[in-house]
Amino acid sequence: MKYVFIVVGVGGTGSLVARDLPKLLIHTNSEMVLIDGDIVEEKNMVRQAYQQHDIGENKANALAKKINTFYGNICESVDHYITKDEILELLKKYEQHIPVLIGCVDNNKTRILLEHTFKQLDECIYIDSANSEYEGNVYVVVKSGQETVGKLRGDAYKFDLDKHPTEKSCEAQAAAGNTQYMVTNLKMANMVIEHISALLHGEIKAGVSVVKRFEAIHIVPKH
């Protein structure tokens, strides 16, 4: 199988997923795309996969450069926030690949866009990560033709009507601060990587993985 892994949001969790994902893709025909409109800042050094020399550079571009340097030309970057149907257009370049959407964003407006994208595709795996300071969960949905296994986050509960990053002022984005806990981001990223590893070994499990302090469980959906 050839997959294209599209990581949307390369901040606290997404940058760690992007950092380790290439190791799983060695000796495969799969590729990856990183999407984020954020710029690396000094505060990101604490819990994200960036270094001092990345400050001032776009996050997706900075990570893609490192990945392509160490693992070959397997990573594309999109240095702005996604808009409706943009991923569908992007996927036209990857017609021979099965798309795997990996959501690591901090706003529901983008999650709605990702779920819209998932619904438009005939075949897709969607892995959506969300967390607060000390806990979080990962929704995994697998779609092939007319069959969908697992629930989208939006099917499980109603999204709050927050703002897409393109609608936020610079001041509002800065005010969001650095509230997530480094260990939580590491645990969330590891859970996402575990699901990707299972997928590559033909053992993908739809459902919800719940991550808490000192605890992690996976709930399989009922048929």
Rank of each mutant, 00 (worst) to 15 (best):
residue 110 T to E: 00
residue 77 S to T: 06
residue 83 T to H: 09
residue 107 N to E: 12
residue 118 F to V: 09
residue 88 L to A: 07
residue 81 Y to L: 02
residue 61 N to D: 12
residue 120 Q to D: 11
residue 117 T to P: 03
residue 76 E to P: 01
residue 85 D to N: 14
residue 116 H to R: 05
residue 124 C to T: 13
residue 80 H to V: 09
residue 121 L to W: 06
residue 97 H to L: 02
residue 60 A to L: 11
residue 119 K to W: 02
residue 114 L to Y: 12
residue 78 V to P: 04
residue 87 I to Q: 07
residue 111 R to A: 11
residue 106 D to P: 04
residue 70 F to R: 13
residue 60 A to V: 04
residue 116 H to N: 11
residue 112 I to T: 13
residue 101 L to P: 06
residue 60 A to H: 02
residue 124 C to Y: 10
residue 69 T to K: 14
residue 72 G to R: 11
residue 121 L to V: 12
residue 61 N to L: 06
residue 81 Y to K: 04
residue 107 N to H: 04
residue 79 D to W: 01
residue 93 K to M: 12
residue 88 L to N: 15
residue 68 N to P: 09
residue 66 K to H: 04
residue 80 H to S: 15
residue 105 V to T: 09
residue 83 T to I: 07
residue 103 G to W: 02
residue 88 L to K: 09
residue 93 K to G: 10
residue 121 L to I: 08
residue 129 S to T: 10
residue 101 L to G: 03
residue 76 E to A: 08
residue 111 R to D: 06
residue 113 L to K: 05
residue 115 E to K: 14
residue 112 I to Q: 05
residue 125 I to H: 08
residue 61 N to Q: 10
residue 91 L to E: 04
residue 76 E to L: 05
residue 67 I to R: 01
residue 128 D to N: 12
residue 85 D to Y: 09
residue 76 E to F: 00
residue 89 E to A: 05
residue 120 Q to C: 14
residue 89 E to C: 14
residue 67 I to W: 00
residue 109 K to E: 11
residue 66 K to V: 15
residue 102 I to Y: 01
residue 84 K to W: 07
